[in-house]
Amino acid sequence: MADKYLKKEALEKLIAAVSSSGGCFIAPTTDARQVVFKSVEKAADITHDYVLARNSYKEFVFPQTEVVATFAVRQHGIGLTGKEVAPKETVIFGARPCEAASLSSLRAVFTWDFIDEFYTKREDRTIVMTVACTTGDEACFCTTVGLSPESTAGSDVYLKETADNGYLVQAISEKGKAFVEKYAAVFEEQAGAKTKKLFMPEKIKGIDLAKITGRLKNTGHYDEPVWAELTRKCIGCGACTYVCPTCHCFDMVDEGTAYEGERRKNWDSCQYDSFTLHASGHNPRDTQFKRWRNRFMCKFSIYPDKFASKGCVGCGRCVRVCPVRLDITEVMEELSK
């Protein structure tokens, strides 16, 4: 499919077209002094001047709290009903190339052997419209983990801003191609517009991913004092895991009254001490550095080795959100030694 062109003012039409066909349009918008992914109804609500949205768009494929079943006490036992999801077409506009690479990672976890259809059904109906970065900040490190603003992995439609206030549009996946065809009226033929210069974060020299993964593979590293030293300042708040586009941990809880209720699947964080606490009182990850080590293992050993996917896409959200500025790249650097 040849490249298309999208005028910024045509976003209005695109939103209207998506909504009128029953879909939902998610874009970066400003709320409480932050740029966040949220459902928008008009183009004017979209924020264009941002590095990344504060939240990852994973919440639209893997909601923060989700009912999986409802139950009610009946005269003869319990009435139990599984929740069905029938997701709408969901367009994520303004994702960045780094985070676009995260859905395949989440999908790998949610589909190995057992298939979590709450996830897959939503993801199947999600169109990721990536806008390549023209700005960035010091927390960005996509180039260090093998991605860049030019990566199209995970994007359904990849957009580059043009100098004349529009976007150069490339349909990447089959889903993306079908999307561009479905809304053909909104897109124009490419007019040869000049694209803006992309922001390319400098690759952090001291970091060697292969070395990190190799070192993590050797089980002996668990007892190295480096973990406690590097992560001593971690306060275990878990904010990193909530903004991370690849963190997938969740809890299952029952809520309701004595007569009826629902079972929910809620985001959880491996950084909490109660996360792995056994009822007996035993806790395999009883100190913060063990929990931090586990998250790092997940990103740089478990995801790459077990799920053949990226655990860390270098979006830098965890660095920006950390109240004690525990910078994962500083740990990566140390473990590259």
Binding site: A32, I235, C237, G238, A239, T241, S269, P323
Partner: peptide
């Protein structure tokens, strides 16, 4: 409205 954004990360408590 303000609390509706809460993600239950408990960062407020931990810090």
């Amino acid at each position: 409205k303000e609390f509706s954004r809460c993600v239950k990360c408990y960062a407020c408590r931990q810090v």
